[in-house]
Design a protein around this nucleic acid. Structure first.
Lengths: 307, 307
DNA sequence: GAAACATATCGATATTTTCGATAAGTAATA
DNA sequence: TATTACTTATCGAAAATATCGATATGTTTC
């Protein structure tokens, strides 16, 4: 094993800053040592990793291919270090889509923080595309996403099942109906999430397409705002059951049964194919799975599927 | 980064041999150097990894947790080394179940060897449980399996769809029938794979359970033997379409349509959760996917599903 | 208790890493 | 063109580390 982790660490720092001096500074070493380490790495395998254009360095194709591999090894090595230094979990950066981030991730991460008070966590809530971007740039350790993402560099793993629910205020005429057929639904005023959100996408795909017409009275970007609008009798809506659990329990909102539609969908774990999950990421994954398994009893959510 | 790959390499060797002297020998270094390296690693993190019982070492709990992590890092590091030493692919060890190993893996690995003549490959064909065992022991880089395996340490990824087919000899009365109902099937002599094979398992689950009775005339452990027995008119059988492609093309065997059953099943990639796939494993995976995509046109097999 | 075998330790040596100082190159600007 | 400000590369010295052979120490087996 001619390679050393130190070399890889220095290479990664130089590759990311594109600058030996700043990399050396960040690693708390002299510029000359960093320069030496890089030259030594290239000499060792007789394989240049940077193009020298005058004073500056530019990562060449070989180097670009190497960087993600090195990032992977370093992440794992850091994981080993934290494991050995007393089993504390290292820093964790999670990305979650809006529904998951607001109604699930916060609960699970609260659990995680309770069990690992020292472990630093960053939660980024954004739409699916943004989460995917961050995963690809190694800015996120783990993504919690809804909807079908398929990217060759991402590894997608099923987590749990969710479903959308059509609902209204308890005073609304539909609150007394056993089940609402398409004709009834088409005659309603709807209050919906904005176009581009995963929830709206599924609503269009699974419900709107089957209605003769659709009367959208209001589009809002926040589920809480939608719930208040529906409570006040402005119309009916369709959101994830997760966002409605409390309101259904309190009776401030009422489910409208729509057996003609299959509104189930899946949440997924996503991570970079070349990035081994850290101990912290594995721990959070465990908590996520435990949460969804436990949720069976308490929320009426279904089991995660296995394949 | 206090850790070094050399240290980890020495630790892994000692942990696996449970013996400093033999580990040192294998690493072509002195016993004292190996001993020092181990002590230094434990001192560095103030964290004993072995119980010293008299003369001998025994990996303790901390060490047992560490070993898989270290194996992962080392595998990736070796991958980086091969990448830097000219892009040659490193050694690859594939495990495949019987059907896949005999009818698919050999074709794909032939492709792989044609494209990478220098790359050493080992293919192990065994039943699913044995493959899983090897994956868990890090004896295999990649498993190609059929059937539902669910193990917390394994990562399962869909590959392609396969299906079982009921078939007979062209002279057989059923060869002229448009479709065979359950009553007809129940009256036949069957020649089947042995109990415990994945194919037989699915046959029992999806067909035998729906027949009023089942007359098993012969059980054989090899698909080729079954095909010859059916060709000679001894009875009818049910095997993967993969194993029958050639025979159907030549007309030496004939498919019996059984639309009342859904005989599809999936093949999967399986690997250890803690083991980052090597460049060689990723390459083989690509070839597998390309093969199954191409197989659409030539074999009538279906696309791998996406989730 | 002796022989065989294993790990741990020690001092000496070779190797590697690191540093500061300095050389040398480029780009912007006066 | 000369100057300034910024890079990366190189050199020799000093410090840190890895490795070795020899030896100490401990365990098991007979």
């Amino acid at each position: 094993m001619k390679l050393s982790l130190r070399q890889l660490e220095i290479f990664a720092a130089i590759a990311k800053t594109q600058n030996v001096s700043r990399a050396a500074e960040r690693l708390a070493m002299s510029q000359s040592a960093a320069s030496n380490a890089l030259v030594e790495l290239e000499r060792l395998y007789d394989c240049p990793l940077f193009d020298r254009i005058g004073k500056s360095l530019h990562l060449n194709a070989t180097g670009q291919g190497l960087l993600p591999l090195v990032e992977g090894v370093l992440a794992q090595a850091r994981d080993i270090e934290t494991y050995l230094s007393g089993g504390q979990l290292g820093p964790l950066s999670v990305g979650a889509t809006l529904t998951i981030g607001n109604y699930l991730a916060t609960l699970i991460i609260a659990d995680y923080l309770r069990q690992h008070p020292e472990a630093p966590v960053a939660l980024q809530v954004a739409n699916t595309d943004a989460i995917v971007e961050r995963l690809l740039r190694f800015d996120c350790d783990l993504g919690l996403i809804e909807g079908d993402v398929s990217h060759p560099d991402l590894l997608i793993e099923p987590w749990m099942e969710d479903e959308l629910v059509v609902f209204c205020a308890p005073q609304h005429p539909l609150a007394q109906v056993a089940a609402a057929d398409n004709a009834i639904l088409a005659s309603q005023d709807w209050i919906l999430r904005e176009r581009g959100s995963g929830t709206r996408g599924q609503f269009n795909r699974d419900i709107a397409r089957h209605l003769p017409r659709l009367n959208v009275r209001l589009e809002l970007e926040h589920t809480e705002a939608i719930k208040r609008a529906v409570e006040s009798g402005l119309g009916i809506s369709c959101l994830s059951r997760l966002a409605l659990r409390e309101a259904f329990r309190r009776g401030s909102l009422v489910e409208i049964s729509t057996p003609q539609f299959d509104l189930r969908r899946h949440f997924f774990f996503a991570r970079h194919r070349l990035r081994q999950p850290t101990a912290a990421a594995r721990r959070l994954r465990e908590l996520c799975l435990a949460f969804s398994a436990g949720a069976d009893d308490t929320t009426g959510l279904q089991l995660p599927f296995i394949h």
